[in-house]
């Protein structure tokens, strides 16, 4: 799992059946202090998140199959939580 920020929304009409009716976002992985880290990912929403939210992204292979009750689920990255607050102390 990793921390990320939702930066944009992807709109599409032609898609795999497993994606019908699901909201897809572009997310930017971030450090706990909010700095960007690495390249963007695309993730399927599972919790009702919105653009601007800090979120937890994750999901192991096969997880989306279970939670969406699908036989075939080519879904790699899920938004599994919206972060309210992070308590942390960074180490050098």
């Amino acid at each position: 799992m990793f921390l990320a920020k939702i930066i944009r929304k992807v709109i599409s009409t032609e898609k795999h059946d497993a994606y019908k009716g699901r909201i897809v976002f572009v997310v930017q992985p971030v450090k706990p202090n909010g700095e960007n880290i690495g390249n963007e990912w695309v993730a399927v929403d599972y919790v009702g998140a919105g653009v601007g939210d800090t979120i937890i992204c994750g999901g192991a292979p096969g997880v989306s199959k279970n939670i969406f009750k699908l036989e075939l689920a080519p879904i790699r990255t899920l938004i599994i939580a919206v972060v309210d607050k992070i308590d942390y102390r960074d180490i050098e």
Binding site: K9, I11, T13, E14, H16, S64, E71, L72, P74, R76
Partner: peptide
């Protein structure tokens, strides 16, 4: 989509691929 989940994009769920197209993007807003 990449890795194991790319296989799931096929109806058979049994193909040797590492990456699959799953959406055609109209626009990113």
């Amino acid at each position: 989509v990449t890795s194991t989940d790319a296989v799931e994009a096929f109806d058979s769920g049994f193909v040797p691929v590492n990456a699959s197209v799953i959406e055609l993007v109209d626009v990113v807003v």
